[in-house]
């Protein structure tokens, strides 16, 4: 006769909770055993991955292939069945240029203008976004008065819809907006910020930084808080200057987070559309017309839409994003290897 093991206190409640869980496990146990018998142990991995792969296939791969198919067709019809196969004509039309630096020499000049604008936007916005996010994260990591409040303040714009962000800044920057009202109050002449090519471009960069900086600051702040404090204490005892501590301790240890932020910002910058579309509509002229807006206008907003050309442009943009993602993966792996060697 076995002696009963004494139950720990409170186990009655734990047992009660486990009853439905066991019941559920029991229900799926029999079918899963049957599946395992049929597929074998190795096949079970594929079985569990199947739902995820199905979702990925339906919502990512399938649209990609449909989009690719559209890029090989011409005409204005929406359904693929009604469209004419034109091979790589749409790509040839996009690349028909005598000088890629001069959009006016291209058949699809607006596409190349949008490519140029997007490239400039990415360079400026990514650099400034990283810089501001890092500086903000460093400041918010210090012992500040009302630190939680400041963290919330910087994060708040992230919660806003891009359309709201665009509208708010439009009301500030337009001819009869708040900024001109304030300037006028101080005796300055009002200025049409959004009608000036350079200011409109600067506004597009600035507004997108304002809207998204909080998110990246949060990622960097999490990275900063994960750096052991004793490293700084040891450096301080050795008489290391704060700037040197930043370059030698903070930055290297923050690098994994920084890499994630850089790639996320890059991808987001290439895809820029919503807030800038509301803010400037791509103007003045085409000075803030970016690639996504070009695709949207070509595929949906113009009279006699050209879904094939829009699809070709989006495939090209997708390729750029794939390259950026591969760079992220490559950098991530190399930093992992370095970390494991150390």
């Amino acid at each position: 006769m076995k002696a009963e093991t004494p139950r720990p206190a409170g186990s009655g409640f734990g047992e009660a909770i486990m009853v439905p869980v066991r019941l559920a496990m029991g229900l799926v146990d029999a079918p899963l055993r049957w599946v395992q018998r049929k597929l074998g142990l190795g096949g079970m991995a594929a079985f569990f991955l199947l739902p995820n792969m199905l979702i990925f296939g339906i919502f990512v791969l399938l649209p990609f292939f449909i989009n690719f198919a559209y890029s090989m067709t011409g005409g204005t019809a929406l359904f693929l069945d009604d469209r004419t196969f034109v091979g790589t004509d749409q790509y040839a039309r996009l690349f028909d240029c005598s000088n890629y630096i001069d959009p006016n020499s291209c058949t699809e000049d607006t596409f190349w203008t949008a490519v140029g604008n997007t490239a400039w936007f990415v360079v400026l916005q990514v650099t400034l976004m990283i810089l501001f996010s890092l500086v903000t994260a460093l400041i918010l990591n210090r012992e500040l008065m009302a630190r939680s409040f400041w963290r919330a303040v910087f994060f708040f714009p992230v919660l806003l819809s891009p359309v709201v962000v665009g509208l708010i800044w439009k009301w500030i920057l337009q001819r009869q907006g708040l900024l001109n009202f304030a300037l006028y109050g101080f005796g300055f002449e009002p200025y049409t910020w959004l009608n000036d090519r350079n200011w409109a471009f600067a506004a597009a960069v600035g507004v997108s930084i304002w809207a998204h900086m909080g998110f990246y600051t949060l990622i960097l702040l999490a990275g900063l808080q994960a750096i052991p404090k004793d490293l700084y204490e040891a450096a301080e005892m050795d008489g290391t200057r704060p700037a040197r501590a930043f370059w030698r301790i903070t930055l290297p240890l923050l690098m994994p987070n920084l890499l994630v932020v850089i790639v996320l910002v890059l991808i987001r910058a290439v895809q820029i559309f919503d807030e800038v579309y509301v803010l400037t509509g791509g103007g003045p002229g085409t000075s803030t017309l970016y690639l996504t807006q070009y695709i949207y206008e070509t595929g949906f907003a113009t009279q006699l839409r050209n879904p094939g050309l829009a699809a070709a442009a989006s495939i090209l943009m997708g390729m750029v994003l794939v390259v950026l993602t591969l760079i992220q993966l490559g950098l991530g792996r190399s930093s992992e290897k370095k970390g494991s060697r150390k």
């Binding site: 959004l194 009608n195 509509g281 791509g282 085409t286 803030t288 113009t302």
Partner: peptide
Amino acid sequence: SKDVWVSAAGSTYRAAADDFIN
């Protein structure tokens, strides 16, 4: 008015009615 015509790219419609009303 430059505001109306250069304020967007593409064929987006813009009216100047508010300027007249104001």
